[in-house]
């Protein structure tokens, strides 16, 4: 440290000590590599985000989590799949300790889908594997995610945000069915495949 005095004419360095210029060169090289990696990672995020609609849900709507069941959009009988006049589908779900309600959602394949969820107690996670659906469900806020299912099938949706003692038992599913298995329904009708 102190014995390296830059002003004096450079004395021969002892064995094993690397000259400062060499260190600077190596540091610059690694800095460039690191910036390059950062750039690639940001590019990957932006490209996949834009091309697959994988982006943080930007919807900010607030709602009182305590009185949800007393009326309004998330009243019990308004949950489930609603078909809008333009054949798009709105699915309303409640995440609570420790269940999603309804615990099985039926959606026609190919229809534009809008999920609207909110929580009654703590933060839950809503994720459908192999789709762009992945959001936190925060009490007091309505999470909104849009997607279109291109393949029919059953998508399991375990809660992916630790929500308490019974977290591991909190799991539901989405059944994406061919449109002929999804009978046309009234505007005020709500369907689900939860056992009745």
């Amino acid at each position: 440290m102190a014995e390296i005095d830059t002003k004096s004419p450079s004395p021969p360095l002892p064995d094993g000590i690397i000259p400062e210029e060499a260190i600077t060169r190596a540091e610059n090289r690694w800095l460039a590599i690191m910036l390059g990696m950062l750039g690639v990672m940001i590019a990957v995020i932006v490209v996949t985000g834009v091309s697959n609609s994988l982006h943080p849900p930007s919807n900010v709507e607030t709602i009182d989590p305590v009185t949800l069941h007393l009326g309004g959009e998330f009243a019990e009988n308004n949950l489930g799949t609603a078909v809008d006049p333009d054949a798009s589908v709105t699915v309303r779900l409640i995440a609570e300790q420790y269940a999603f309600v309804p615990d099985c959602t039926r959606i026609p394949v190919g229809a534009p889908v809008k999920f609207r969820l909110t929580s009654t107690d703590v933060i839950h996670g809503f994720l459908l594997p192999a789709t762009n659906v992945n959001t936190m469900v925060v009490p007091g806020f309505i999470a909104e995610v849009r997607t279109t299912f291109s393949r029919p099938g059953v998508y399991n949706m375990p809660c992916n945000e630790f929500c308490g003692y019974g977290h591991h038992g909190m799991s539901a599913r989405v059944e994406v069915v061919p449109s002929e298995q999804f009978p046309p329904q009234d505007a005020a009708e709500r369907t689900s495949c939860a056992k009745q």
């Binding site: 009185t67 069941h69 009326g71 019990e76 809008d84 709105t90």
Partner: peptide, 29 residues
Amino acid sequence: CRGLGLNADIAPAKESEPALRTPSRIAWT
């Protein structure tokens, strides 16, 4: 505005809703 949560026109579509049935009058306020 939407990203900041300042937008007013993001309310749900005003579709017809089924008749309200509440499981309980109690809310844990």
